[in-house]
């Protein structure tokens, strides 16, 4: 994202010392407010029992390092299973969503093609109304998808906004290349996969991130459609054992492997669950973030 000025322009006065101090304080304060909770959570999850007990709760100052909480979590049990469920749903869901979105965005991006206007209109109408929670629930139930992982994917698989963004991006690509490929006898599938997609890595990464984050964070769909807690995705486990603070002492959460051995303190395990929910997002996001700043999304949207 280009800002107005790369350097201070010659005509601009240098701000006074107090105003510079004030600005930097505010900016630093904002950064601290965002980062501080994450710091405390990560630190506590990595602290040994002695440090957690000494602090009487969350740990502010590092005092030793222990991976016991993570060893407990991944020793099998509710959290390990929930992580696998969430990873699987995120992976399959993102592939389904991205595939359907790319295909439809390209299929509707050729000016003058048959029926592209009414089909696009049908997608755009979704901006105006949602079907409603209850009829959708009944439909998912009638389709036999209650307690199926597909219920976490299919109802939200195609997001009309992402489709419109992608379509606008495809329409902005120079058409001459595809046209000449057509003259050479290439079919649409070849044009999409060989020409259009290689030119659209940025927008694909951003839309893919949006879908993946959506699936990883999915909570609402799971609350509605997943009754069997053996199939819970991570966010529901996070809610039950951390937000609602249900006790972890039962042997269901930490693996059987650690029963009877010294296990990490309850709070460290809770914070480790938070970190597990947090980490994939914070790691994938910087890889994609540079594409936001290129204005992929915003520049593409006026179509």
């Amino acid at each position: 994202m280009s800002t107005l000025f790369k350097d201070r322009p010659v005509w601009a006065e240098r701000p006074s010392l107090p105003s510079r101090l004030a600005k930097n304080t505010v900016l630093a304060g904002i950064a601290v407010v965002v980062v501080f909770p994450l710091y405390v959570v990560v630190l506590t999850s990595l602290s040994p029992a002695s440090a957690v007990n000494a602090a009487g709760g969350l740990v502010l100052v590092p005092d030793g390092l222990s991976f016991q909480a993570y060893a407990d979590l991944f020793g099998g049990g509710v959290v390990s299973r929930a992580v696998l469920v969430s990873l699987g749903v995120t992976l399959v869901g993102t592939l389904v969503s991205l595939g359907a979105t790319i295909l439809a965005a390209y299929g509707l991006s050729q000016p003058g093609s048959l029926w592209h206007r009414p089909i696009l209109f049908a997608f755009l109408l979704t901006f105006l109304f949602a079907p409603g929670m209850i009829p959708l629930y009944l439909l998912v139930s009638d389709l036999g998808l209650i307690d199926s992982y597909w219920s976490l994917i299919l109802p939200t698989a195609v997001n009309a906004f992402n489709l419109v963004v992608m379509r606008a991006f495809f329409m902005n690509l120079p058409g001459e290349i595809s046209d000449s490929a057509r003259v050479d006898g290439a079919n649409e599938w070849t044009i999409l996969t060989r020409l259009v997609l290689p030119m659209s890595k940025g927008v694909t990464a951003v839309i893919g991130l949006f879908y993946a984050v959506g699936y990883w964070n999915a909570f609402f769909n799971a609350i509605l459609y997943i009754n069997d807690n053996a199939k819970w995705p991570l966010q529901l486990v996070l809610r039950q054992y951390v937000q609602q603070g249900q006790q972890l002492s039962s042997n269901s959460v930490v693996g059987d492997a650690v029963q009877g051995t010294a296990s990490a303190p309850n709070l460290a395990i809770q914070m480790a669950i938070v970190v597990v929910a947090l980490v994939p997002v914070t790691f994938i996001y910087p890889l994609v973030q540079k594409h936001f700043t290129k204005g992929v999304i915003i520049g593409a949207v006026k179509g």
Binding site: A104, G107, L108
Partner: peptide, 20 residues
């Protein structure tokens, strides 16, 4: 071919938006 490409998303839209 273009219509076929739009079909999967269109089916999802019809089933999970318009039907409910």
């Amino acid at each position: 071919q273009l219509l076929l490409m739009a079909l999967p998303a269109l089916v999802l839209l019809a089933v999970f938006h318009y039907a409910p």
